[in-house]
């Protein structure tokens, strides 16, 4: 994926670390048949690259659902590299087409969560592209080095947002929509013509935003009951929009309301079972 080259200092929550001190931790999910094999060839050919990527082998890039990626960012990864076969080369026929669609969602959620989307990178590396693998890793490590460490462990606000994005990625609504889109994708064909952008894509974008905001409301109201206004302010979302979300969440029985007389109502997340 070619990334547009724009400034890298734009995220306020992620100050740039002093060069030299910071060794990024990058997880690389590599599909067994192409990118893992490409990494193998890279080794056999002795192309050198920085030591920061930790490969995790999966059978197909399609295995990586958005919540895995968000969960790992939540755990503090500085970057995640997804490696797959080139489109049309997938060992499992169409897996990487699905991956591409899912990555779109992941990037959207990262953006919502305030994580620079450049921290996630999807690359097609074939089994014969050993040198490319080293280049990708070198470049990506450099990108992450410039972005500085993931602040999730230090920054509580960021933590809630990433947690919310993680939750949103797990919601039935988003997964069902993406599933539907993938079902349509499958009817696309193996000769390299991709389906046109669907209406569905727009729907998914809207749903992503909504689900993220709802999850964030739940996240923020977990330990403390909060008012609409308060939520609106933290989330930088207009209050009427917050209220709409609250209505939905109340209908789903996910929020409880406290309304002492004379006070503005506040809402608290209903926690089922031990874990939320």
């Amino acid at each position: 994926m070619a990334e547009p080259q724009h400034t890298i200092h734009e995220k306020k929550d992620e100050p740039r670390a002093a060069a030299g001190e910071f060794e990024p931790k990058i997880i690389g999910f590599l599909c067994n048949w192409c990118s893992y094999a490409g990494a193998d060839l890279c080794g056999v050919s002795r192309y050198q690259y920085p030591t920061n990527v930790r490969p995790v082998r999966v059978m197909c890039s399609t295995r990586i659902s958005p919540h895995l990626v968000l969960d790992i960012f939540k755990a503090g990864a500085d970057g995640i590299l997804l490696g797959g076969c080139h489109l049309n080369d997938c060992h499992y026929i169409s897996g990487n087409f699905y991956t591409e669609k899912r990555v779109r969602l992941m990037l959207k959620l990262l953006e919502d969560a305030g994580v620079d989307p450049k921290r996630l990178r999807l690359e097609w590396v074939s089994a014969s592209e050993g040198e490319k693998f080293s280049k990708v890793v070198t470049e990506f490590t450099e990108t992450i080095r410039n972005l500085g460490p993931n602040q999730v462990k230090k920054d509580a606000a960021l933590r809630s947002k990433i947690a919310a994005a993680d939750e949103a990625s797990d919601t039935f609504r988003l997964r069902a929509l993406v599933g539907k889109e993938l079902g349509l994708e499958k009817t696309g064909n193996v000769y390299g013509n991709k389906l046109e952008q669907t209406e569905l894509e727009k729907l998914i974008d809207i749903a992503t935003k909504e689900e993220f905001e709802r999850s964030l409301i739940l996240e923020l109201s977990k330990d403390k009951a909060r008012s609409v206004k308060e939520l609106g302010k933290i989330m930088e979302v207009p209050t009427d929009r917050v209220l709409r979300h609250i209505v939905v969440l109340r209908q789903k029985n996910m929020l409880s309301m406290d309304h002492p007389e004379g006070f503005t109502p506040t809402y608290k997340t209903i926690i089922i079972g031990g874990e939320q």
């Binding site: 048949w33 192409c34 094999a37 076969c85 080139h86 049309n88 080369d89 060992h91 074939s126 089994a127 014969s128 592209e129 193996v190 000769y191 390299g192």
Partner: peptide, 13 residues
Amino acid sequence: FPTNDCSICILAP
């Protein structure tokens, strides 16, 4: 041809 798959990738396995 005609899908431009990488030859060794599909052959090596």
